[in-house]
Computed example of a mutant assay.
Amino acid sequence: MKKKINPIDEQQFYDFFAKNSDLPENYYDFFKDSINNAKSFSIGPYFWFITNNTKMRTERTSENIGQFTPYSKEEWINSDTDFFINLFHPNDRHHIMAAFVFSATLRLQLLREGKTKIRFNYYGRMIDRNGGYRWILLQSPLQIIHNFEIKASLVVVYDLSHFIIQNHPLLSIIDFTDNEVQYFKHIDQGLHKIDTKKPNITNREKDILRLMAQGFNSPEIAEKLFISYNTVENHKSNLRKKTNTKTSAELIAYTMNHSLLVL
């Protein structure tokens, strides 16, 4: 049966996520390890921020956040829901909000079923510091959930402007428990399921993937990892076989959609 996610407005988004209870003052500490580890999993330039759903405000950000949007860190702090949503392209905003609500509802449902190894990737066009729009990958890898309510979230946004990849899905859902990936190619399209086993990627192959995703070519990767050019090419060939992809662009798209590197 086909499923659809209907666009929603700002008030519906706010009503879903806003919570009345309080958070402890030191709740930021809950996210420290994930923030410190973010660089190790990065597929390119990124920034992060922490939202407090009891106030519907952004309360912490990375120091570099002013490099990625037209707004300074000071403008981000204590910003509201509208501030965040208006960062997206006007044609994407209502769809992105609907994807957030849909995935949050699904996450809580799966938690009740005992499934915790779920990953959600969101794709959209977000404004850059020069006022243009580029594709981003957004994840909320860690959330404070109490009584099946999302109280606070760490949000990591990866800049995908250095990729030349067509047809980004709006939302991909990865269930590592059942080895299943679900894509929403468009917000009003039916759900497209793909049964897949997560490929066995070695640590060296992850090093190769990470540098590829950051835009380095084979000679540069060889120099950074102190290995030969042919060794890099062999690793790339093995990765394409494992992921059933034909080009580097397809390999990087697979890497993002299946969360092989990101948090």
Rank of each mutant, 00 (worst) to 15 (best):
I85T: 12
P90Y: 13
T69R: 01
R57G: 03
T81R: 04
V156Q: 02
E113Q: 15
R134E: 12
F68Q: 03
W135F: 13
R93T: 06
E223L: 10
N167G: 06
T196P: 00
S42H: 06
L170G: 01
L191R: 08
D159Y: 08
R125G: 03
V262M: 07
S153G: 00
N53R: 15
L110P: 02
Q214S: 13
Q109E: 15
F31W: 05
L211S: 03
F226Q: 13
F13E: 03
N37Y: 04
D33Y: 10
K115H: 11
N244Y: 12
E10V: 15
K197R: 07
I227A: 03
I201E: 01
N52G: 08
P45R: 10
D92H: 10
A222C: 09
Q182H: 12
E75T: 08
F176T: 00
I127G: 02
I221H: 05
K4Q: 08
D207V: 01
N234T: 13
G114Y: 11
R129Y: 05
E75M: 09
A253V: 01
N130Q: 13
P70C: 09
E205T: 06
K241Y: 10
L110F: 08
T54S: 13
K151H: 08
N6A: 11
S218V: 03
I194M: 14
H168G: 00
I165H: 12
N217F: 04
I8L: 04
N52P: 10
F30A: 06
Y229Q: 14
D128T: 13
Q67I: 03
F226P: 01
N238G: 00
D80Q: 08
G190H: 09
N6E: 10
P219L: 12
Y46V: 07
N238E: 11
G44W: 00
L110E: 12
P7V: 08
E149C: 06
Y123G: 07
K3D: 11
Y229P: 06
S40G: 12
R134H: 15
N53L: 13
I145Y: 04
G44R: 06
D207W: 01
N78Y: 10
N20V: 05
R240F: 07
I164Q: 15
R57F: 08
D80M: 06
L23F: 02
K236P: 04
S248T: 15
W135V: 12
F216L: 14
F30L: 09
E223R: 12
Y71L: 03
